[in-house]
């Protein structure tokens, strides 16, 4: 086995195409996860049991089953009775939905971590409910929430190659296709190294954030 830089060179244009798709999936998936997670977290705090229970059940179910099978479900089952989506769109929705159940826990813990006294003080000052959330609770919750959210973005990055299994041309999809066409494996190695190169500085960044924000 010898390493052939020419193969790597041939792969690079498609590698960058793949990077673009991966980034697209990551960015939009992150947005969905962050927003949807907040919806789940607030619903789980609802005073109405008929809101709380189903949401808790659904999020627990999604969090405890494999993303890969969820992607298959979205790609092969949902079109039977719902919209038919492209592989990339399916992948984005799957990533966002799966990770929203994790971010929901982050928000839940972040909001729960704000001392009860803060709610009481807001009540004592007769702040409106919306004002209490915006001015008192969320600003305090946010610093507990940012580092773990960052961790989940990195986790999502590492799970993003799964969308290749339903035919999206992300980094792994491109590498796989290229390898099959050329009977080489360099492309896979390049993608593997690329993940480490991106994930390591990202986790350093999160640790730095954590040190700044927590305490």
């Amino acid at each position: 086995m010898s390493w052939d830089w020419n193969v790597v060179e041939d792969f690079m244009p498609r590698f960058w195409d793949g990077v673009l798709v991966t980034l697209q999936a990551l960015v939009i998936g992150t947005l969905i996860a962050f927003v949807l997670g907040l919806v789940w977290a607030l619903a789980q705090r609802s005073s109405q049991a008929w809101v709380r229970w189903p949401v808790t059940a659904v999020t627990e179910f999604i969090r405890n089953t494999p993303l890969l099978v969820q992607l298959f479900f979205l790609f092969y089952v949902v079109p039977n009775f719902g919209p038919s989506m492209s592989p990339l769109t399916t992948g984005i929705v799957g990533l966002g939905l799966h990770y929203s159940t994790y971010t929901a826990e982050v928000y839940r813990a972040g909001i729960g971590g704000v001392p009860v006294g803060q709610w009481e003080a807001a009540t004592a000052l007769s702040l409106s409910k919306g004002r209490t959330w915006r001015a008192v609770i969320l600003p305090q919750a946010i610093r507990r929430v940012v580092p773990p959210l960052g961790n989940y973005v990195v986790a999502m990055l590492k799970d993003s190659p799964m969308i290749a299994t339903i035919g999206a041309f992300d980094m792994l999809g491109e590498a796989q296709a290229f390898s099959n066409e050329t009977f080489t494996t360099e492309a896979l190695t390049v993608v593997g190294v690329a993940f480490i190169v991106v994930a390591y500085p990202a986790s350093l960044l999160i640790r730095a954030l954590e040190r700044r924000l927590v305490r």
Binding site: M1, L157, K158, D159, S160, P161, M162, L172, Q176, S179, T185, L188, T189, V191, G192, F195, I196, V198, A199, Y200, S203
Partner: peptide, 23 residues
Amino acid sequence: EVFRGMSALVLMFWMFFALPLFG
């Protein structure tokens, strides 16, 4: 740091397809 940064699926692919070429 290396294995935490690694995507399990990519590593699996690599071990399945690339490692055999190293014997």
